[in-house]
Design a protein around this nucleic acid. Structure first.
Length: 425
RNA sequence: GGAGAGGUGGCCGAGUGGUCGAAGGCGCAGCACUGGAAAUGCUGUAUAGGGGCAACUCUAUCGAGGGUUCGAAUCCCUCCCUCUCCGCCA
């Protein structure tokens, strides 16, 4: 959420920064609302101060022996009543204005970081580095074909169970999924991340806190009878772990690694990635999340990205790192690195992790602060996939496929999977 | 789902109409005492918003929202949540 004070005092800055995202916004009316709200608050509190004074005076007079029904007290009562009238009118208006302001503020995306490169869309993203050597070869299968041939998953039966864009994993496929989750949790757990297994049903305050609501309601599944939604990412429950808290400075940074299934409606993606494990309504993900002191989020961003990359390296999967341009930035992010893994069968890089620094954007929405001496400050938050499990499996299948039809797995997975190869059954 | 109890500061807990943002305790921080520590003593210790260079000051907040009153943590109404027992259940 944008800082209300900034809206009042420097709307031009906001407009300029949102302009870098490709938004053409006129903030003058919002600024007006914000100023109006502040004016109303000033008027109201001045009146309330006067009312409080009168209330106390009445108390003192009565205590001092004045007749509670006498003229002197009656006069004060009348003054009190008059003020009460005015306050209540102002209060009503102020509430309306404040709620209008809040509603609007919640719809604005984060301002891009100064470091974030300007650009229009994904074509303007900047490749930062590459790791590993992509396997390029004619006749390689795509992962869904491999998975089908090896009996690792069944999409058609999943339609019977749920609908399209769901998969059911079987046998070695199910075991590989489970192995990957454990492998990633262990890897990050060994690097100072605290493991959490959060609820995957989250309330709307949580979704608002991390930025999914109010704008992206159509992207999440909602429970009909409760204020609960299926979480689209563990980022949501983990952000709300500390909602409305003041975290002592000595505890920062807080680093969490959370496994969760993720649920996304994928509205508007009809026809894209309809086969296999790339785009599903339900998928597994291991998520990294940091709460950091506001002065240290840049270093943290480099580190969380490195931690996500470490998974790909351990799995010997070639990848590249893109820095997203302002036009491709997510709603809550101020700066993002995407990790794209090489899919040998498809012959393309595909996003497998997105590592973002959100500055104080989520912290303001979620009211998560830290304290230095007398000063409270909003913390900064960061999140990064470490990694999306389904896409990791896809990459392992495509990059590890062998001429004999089997799939060779990286050594790091052997203790988790119980072997170094998926064999045709 | 049925029955009951309860929501007060970081925590415990007092407070049933009048300088109550709230006693007391614990915890925490600083100072004193000490060779050092414990113990002890003193001082300080909520959040948000507004104003002020600042010292500071005003307003709001005792689960949430309404109401009564000159004045509400305290009285009334509605809602939410938590806990306990029973039922059901992994």
């Amino acid at each position: 959420m944008l800082d209300q004070r900034l809206v009042r005092e420097n709307p031009e800055l906001i407009a300029t920064q949102l302009g870098r995202r490709g938004m053409d916004v006129d903030l003058s009316s919002l600024q007006e609302i914000a100023q109006h709200q502040r004016d109303l608050e000033q008027q109201r509190s001045t009146l309330q101060a006067e009312g409080n004074r009168i209330g106390k005076e009445v108390g003192l007079k009565i205590k001092g022996g004045a007749d509670p029904k006498g003229a002197e007290v009656a006069e004060l009562r009348q003054q009190g009543n008059a003020i009460k009238q005015k306050v209540s009118v102002l209060e009503d208006e102020e509430k309306q204005v404040a709620s209008k302001l809040k509603t609007q503020l919640l719809t604005f995306p984060n301002l891009p970081s100064a470091e974030c490169p300007d650009g229009k869309d994904e074509n303007d993203n900047i490749e930062v580095r590459r790791w590993g050597t992509p396997r390029e070869q004619e006749g390689l299968e795509e992962h869904w074909a491999i998975a089908d041939r090896l009996g690792l998953l069944d999409s058609e039966r999943s339609v019977r169970i749920a609908q399209s864009r769901f998969v059911t994993l079987f046998g070695q496929g199910a075991r590989l999924e489970r192995a990957l989750i454990n492998f990633m949790l262990d890897l990050h757990g060994g690097k100072g991340y605290r493991e959490v297994l959060p609820p995957v049903l989250v309330n709307s305050a949580s979704l608002t806190g991390s930025g999914q609501l109010p704008k992206f309601a159509e992207e999440s599944f909602r429970c009909a009878d409760d204020d609960l939604w299926l979480t689209p990412t563990a980022e949501v429950p983990v952000t709300s772990l500390h909602r409305d808290e003041i975290i002592p400075g000595a505890q920062l940074p807080l680093k969490y690694v959370a496994y969760s299934p993720c649920f996304r409606r994928e509205a508007g993606s009809y026809g894209r990635d309809t086969r296999g494990l790339i785009r599903l309504h339900q998928f597994n993900k291991v998520e990294l999340y940091w709460f950091v002191h506001p002065d240290h989020s840049e270093e943290a961003h480099a580190q969380i990205t490195a931690d996500a990359e470490a998974v790909l390296q351990a799995l010997e999967l070639p990848y590249r790192v893109l820095e997203l341009c302002t036009g491709d930035l997510g709603f809550s992010a101020s700066r993002t690195y995407d990790l794209e893994v090489w899919l040998a069968g498809a012959g393309a890089f595909r996003e497998i992790s997105s590592c973002s620094v959100c500055g104080d954007f989520q912290a303001r929405r979620s009211s998560i602060r830290t304290k230095e001496g007398k000063v409270t400050r909003l913390v900064h938050t960061l999140n990064g996939s470490g990694l999306a499990i389904g896409r990791t499996m896809a990459a392992l299948l495509e990059n590890g496929q062998q001429a004999d039809g089997s799939v060779l797995l990286p050594q790091a997975l052997v203790p988790y999977f119980g072997g170094d190869r998926i064999q045709p059954e």
